[in-house]
């Protein structure tokens, strides 16, 4: 029992180290976790609020844990994955439907595929079209995005990484 708890907390601390590293962190061996749960890649999401704080005339952006937000607040969602299994995971596709109350910030999810039709079709935002109110097609904007998708070609055993996107409370 005691041993088991020790193993768990060890796995947790290693995971936290991985989380703190930048996106697509290099592989890290976590033999304890892989022994516990083979062939599983976890996914965890968290949200922070971006506050611009001006101190002594210098503006800087702070990330704070939001309890509450108001319309117009900028949110940063972070999706963290971790391959705790013993096998490489390939074609790891993370899908996040945007909450209806959240607008994708302009250039809020650069370089990844988005959907503007509820996840039916996907592409880079500048290649997508939506139907304008007059029935004619127009170029999709960040505000039209309903879903965001990231594809990680391969996650080695024990590897971790994260992706982020920026949203605005409608």
């Amino acid at each position: 029992m005691n041993v088991s708890i020790l193993v768990k907390s060890l796995a947790g601390s290693i995971a936290m180290m991985a989380m703190a590293s930048p996106a697509l962190a290099a592989a890290q061996a976590t033999p304890a976790a892989s022994a516990q749960a083979p062939a599983a890649v976890s996914l965890k999401i968290d949200v922070m609020i971006e506050k611009t704080v001006t101190e002594n005339g210098v503006s800087k952006v702070q990330l704070v844990d939001p309890k509450v937000v108001v319309p117009g607040d900028k949110l940063v969602y972070t999706l963290r994955y971790h391959n705790a299994g013993g096998l490489p995971a390939v074609n790891y596709v993370m899908t996040n439907p945007l909450p209806s109350a959240v607008l994708l910030a302009p250039d809020g999810a650069p370089g990844t595929d988005v959907s503007v039709d509820g996840g039916k079709t996907w592409g880079k935002l500048d290649a997508l079209k939506v139907t304008a109110t007059d029935g004619s097609p127009r170029a999709a904007a960040a505000a039209d995005v309903t879903h965001i998708r990231w594809t990680i070609a391969q996650i080695a055993p024990g590897a971790s990484g994260e992706v982020q996107y920026h949203g605005i409370v409608r």
Partner: peptide, 28 residues
């Protein structure tokens, strides 16, 4: 405002899928 992400993947042992935790913030 509730948000949950999902992921699908393949390993040598087959395909898998995972649902993330849900994060919630309240609008003031």
């Amino acid at each position: 405002i509730e948000n949950t992400a999902t992921a699908t993947y393949e390993t040598g042992a087959g395909t898998g899928s995972v649902t993330s935790n849900k994060v919630t913030v309240k609008v003031d």
